[in-house]
């Protein structure tokens, strides 16, 4: 992926990551109207469109923050495909009947498809990780929060009133427990290949 050329629209990704209000406003002014239209034409409301757009931007932000997302296609196509995918998932969850989708406005381009797919899988994984984290016992949750917030294991050990060696061992066992929860979940096998 690093071999591919970064698109000039990377400025939107960087702007989101820097929490730059100009860029966020520009994304709403330039790219959001198309998404709202699409969702309204496909049995959605404006409020639902607002949620889909917001969730999508948070997923992009998270991927940029955690994985250093590099945009290799126009932001327009990428963003639209992502919102569309997210909306289809909402429809699938809320209705059991067959979903008919107006395909006319679909943006073409393999690069955008590929990247949007990657980001939505990232988002789904994150949601699964968050869900499984909640299933951990309180002791593990607190230890992991402290570990990744404070960063120094010595300080973590002191703040939890345990020894350094114990805190370190406990950290790996807690992430281990989380690893098991994730690997055992049926959802995990859907996107793990």
């Amino acid at each position: 992926m690093s071999e591919k050329k970064t698109h000039e629209d990377q400025k939107y990704i960087d702007g989101l990551l820097k929490n730059n209000s100009f860029i966020i406003q520009a994304i709403y002014d330039k790219f959001v109207p198309k998404v709202v239209n699409y969702i309204k034409q496909n049995s959605g409301s404006r409020d639902q469109a607002q949620d889909v757009v917001q969730d999508t931007l948070v997923t992009i932000y998270n991927q940029a923050s955690e994985k250093g997302l590099k945009l290799t296609c126009p932001f327009d196509a990428y963003f639209f495909l992502l919102c569309k995918r997210k909306w289809l998932n909402v429809l699938k969850k809320t209705s059991n009947k067959e979903v008919t989708i107006n395909e006319e406005v679909l943006s073409k381009g393999d690069e955008a498809q590929e990247l949007a797919f990657e980001t939505s899988v990232f988002g789904e994984k994150q949601a699964l990780f968050a869900e499984m984290f909640e299933k951990l016992g309180n002791a593990c949750q607190d230890l992991l929060k402290a570990t990744f917030k404070i960063k120094s294991m010595e300080e973590v050990a002191a703040s939890l009133n345990v020894t350094y060696a114990y805190a370190r061992k406990k950290k790996s066992l807690c992430i281990g427990k989380l690893t098991e929860l994730v690997r055992e979940s049926p959802k995990f096998n859907q996107f793990n290949n």
Binding site: K67, F129, F133, F148, K151, I175, L178, T179, V182, R183
Partner: peptide, 15 residues
């Protein structure tokens, strides 16, 4: 998976 979870937690709580 362990590594992905570590990155996830580090980003989630670190930032």
């Amino acid at each position: 998976t362990y590594k992905n979870l570590s990155h996830y937690l580090s980003d989630k709580f670190g930032n």
